[in-house]
Design a protein around this nucleic acid. Structure first.
Length: 569
RNA sequence: GGGCCUGUAGCUCAAUUGGUUAGAGCAGAGCGCUCAUAACGCUUUGGUUGCGGGUUCAAGUCCUGCCGGGCCUACCA
């Protein structure tokens, strides 16, 4: 048994996330957490909401609520949705927690003491009407290059030219439209990532087993142009972690907060402390290598947009602190899931949102399809036809129907108890041998976090049950040799339990239903397949379950296609 | 503009990292079965691996040039 720390990239608080967010981090992380628990490892699975920053303030203002209240409500909504998808976090924290405030300030203090913080005076655009400094992309105006009138302060979307806000003609606030803007001097803290460049570079070089997607993004940032740049870690906002030097005030930084990308990853640690404060557990044995975390394996899951922060900024924070914090061992990153030929988009309301998905179908349908199509090597594509076909075939026909046919056949010939006559013969031994090979392959893919390949192996394991039933044909055997048919059915019923155990990381609800129907609490991993297929012995009572997976009809598919064709609201 | 990823059967994806005749699932066709959610099983039709050059005994894989798709580009998070 080993200890495994798993974190999923923390979703931003601003609104309900779409399915792309789910498949890019939380869902595969949950798959891996459930798998490792099933293998008997001690797992700490952490996620949280990322609550600070300008968009949260604006969304709260739009909703007419104080930002703290807005975030608390949205956190509850996201927690409920996560629960709906059966995400098995040990703790779902909040980056606005007091624990994170304290820890973020602590790290800042350590980095300052190590000489890794620089104070920089810079000029930024201030909007008098909005009463705030504006991030570059919240300033709009006419592009000096192409004349497009909705160019943003960081880039013109029309001609893709990189811009400075001061380049814009007739600049205005994207928030209020006000043109009452001025350039003000303001002081900010920069994390001197450049001073840690060589150390980070060497560290990344040792990670030869990481996905190319992860290391190539890190390398790009390390080597592009002048190399890794220092990064501003503070903002002129009200909502966030107040800038402090550990416990002490930071002269000259009054009224400023840390930038979300400084405090958000620290929340992984703080959320574990939130968990500890709630449960009385020990968080330091997961995070402090001087307090037991040296034998922890730490794995992060995230979409590709988050890679620079996790490969560079956060490690810079950890390393720069000079304290023995646990560093990530493996970063599993994902590409994007597209929706019918374009991107899912939270801001544009395009695609299927998590709450809507749960309204129309149970979690397992989404979990199975999304995981078996996880965008690992490339961006992948959601289409309703694909979704319908995949779910109907894999879940309803292959797995669901298998459970249905064996339990119903047994009920009609032997009643609702495992028949005890007969012994397993050569056909059964052959199946056991095949399953041993396939389960080994499944385990190998799960250990390697090859999500799609693991799904393929699992499906092949389900198919093996149908193949066996077809060739054993207990409905024929029964007419000549009742004892032989009994043994065949007994094996089939044991397969249901085996499938429940193996499939639980992907489809936990169906797995629970299968176990419940088989009237067993035995969820031991089938290290010994032969023994596992004798777990339910003669006389053990069971119940024929309801249909595990109803099929998606063409009418359903078409109506959902229509409903989700446009944008939300 | 720069960097990275990518293009394989109608669709979604593989291919042990340069090694026999490029494989699966779905969809299509045929046969079988009747326990089952008209479900299952078996067989089978589909590919000049985007296009052109090159290296090599050997290229889907490496190099190069085109063409297409995607992401990132540091103040969205």
């Amino acid at each position: 048994m080993s200890r495994i720390l798993i974190t999923s990239a923390i979703p931003y608080i601003n609104g309900i996330k779409h399915l792309g967010n789910l498949v890019g981090s939380q869902l595969p992380a949950d798959l891996f957490a459930r798998y490792n628990r099933a293998r008997g490892h001690e797992v700490m699975f952490i996620c949280a909401t990322d609550e600070h920053g300008t968009p949260a303030e604006l969304a709260a203002a739009k909703a007419g609520k104080p930002v703290a209240e807005f975030c608390a409500e949205m956190h509850a909504v996201q927690a409920q949705i996560a629960d709906g998808f059966r995400l098995s976090f040990d703790h779902f924290g909040r980056s606005s927690s007091p624990q994170n405030h304290k820890l973020t300030q602590h790290f800042a203090g350590r980095l300052k003491a190590a000489g890794l913080i620089e104070e920089v005076s810079e000029k930024q655009v201030y909007s008098n009407a909005d009463g705030r400094f504006l991030p570059d992309r919240y300033i709009e105006g006419i592009c000096p290059n192409c004349g497009y009138d909705k160019a943003r302060g960081d880039q013109c979307e029309n001609c893709t030219k990189q811009l400075d806000p001061t380049d814009l003609i007739e600049p205005r606030s994207a928030i209020s439209g006000s043109t009452d803007l001025e350039v003000r001097e303001t002081k900010h803290l920069y994390l001197r990532q450049s001073a840690l460049k060589d150390e980070l570079d060497k560290w990344i070089d040792t990670k030869t087993d990481w996905p190319v997607l992860t290391t190539s993004i890190a390398k790009k940032w390390l080597h592009d142009g002048d190399g890794l740049q220092d990064r501003g870690i503070t903002r002129d906002l009200d909502w966030g972690v107040p800038v402090k030097d550990g416990e002490n005030d930071w002269p000259g930084m009054e009224g400023k907060v840390f930038y979300v990308w400084f405090d958000a990853p620290i929340e992984y640690i703080a959320a574990t402390k939130e968990w500890a404060d709630k449960t009385g557990g020990d968080w330091e044995r997961w995070w402090r290598t001087d307090k037991g975390a040296d034998d922890v394996r730490y794995i992060q899951f995230m979409g590709k947009d988050n890679v620079p922060f996790h490969t560079l900024s956060f490690p810079a924070t950890i390393k720069g602190s000079g304290e023995p914090w646990k560093l990530v061992d493996y970063i599993k990153s994902f590409n994007y899931l597209n929706y019918d030929g374009g991107q899912f988009s939270t801001s544009q309301g395009r695609g299927i949102f998590q709450d809507q998905a749960l309204e129309i179908l149970p979690a397992d349908y989404w979990r199975w399809w999304l995981l078996s199509h996880a965008p690992e090597s490339n961006d992948s594509e959601f289409t309703w036809e694909n979704f319908q076909a995949g779910v109907n075939k894999d879940l309803a026909d292959v797995l669901g129907n298998f459970v249905s046919r064996i339990t119903k056949f047994c009920r009609s010939k032997f009643g609702e108890a495992v028949p005890e006559a007969g012994d397993y013969g050569s056909a059964e031994l052959a199946l056991i041998a095949e399953l041993e090979t396939r389960i080994q392959a499944y385990v190998a893919q799960m250990e390697a976090m090859e999500v799609r390949k693991a799904a393929t192996e699992l499906r092949a394991i389900w198919v093996a049950g149908n193949e066996y039933l077809q060739s054993a044909a207990p409905w024929s055997t029964f007419k000549e040799d009742e004892a032989k048919a009994a043994a065949q059915v007994r094996l089939g019923l044991n397969l249901v339990r085996l499938y429940a155990v193996l499939s639980a990381p992907f489809i936990p609800d169906a797995s629970a239903k299968m176990l419940s129907a088989m009237n067993t609490l035995d969820t031991d991993w089938p290290d010994d397949v032969s023994a596992a297929l004798s777990a339910l012995s003669g006389g053990h009572e069971f119940a024929v379950p309801d249909v595990l997976f109803a099929k998606i009809s063409d009418e359903d598919r078409e109506s959902w296609q229509d409903r989700f064709a446009g944008t939300r609201d």
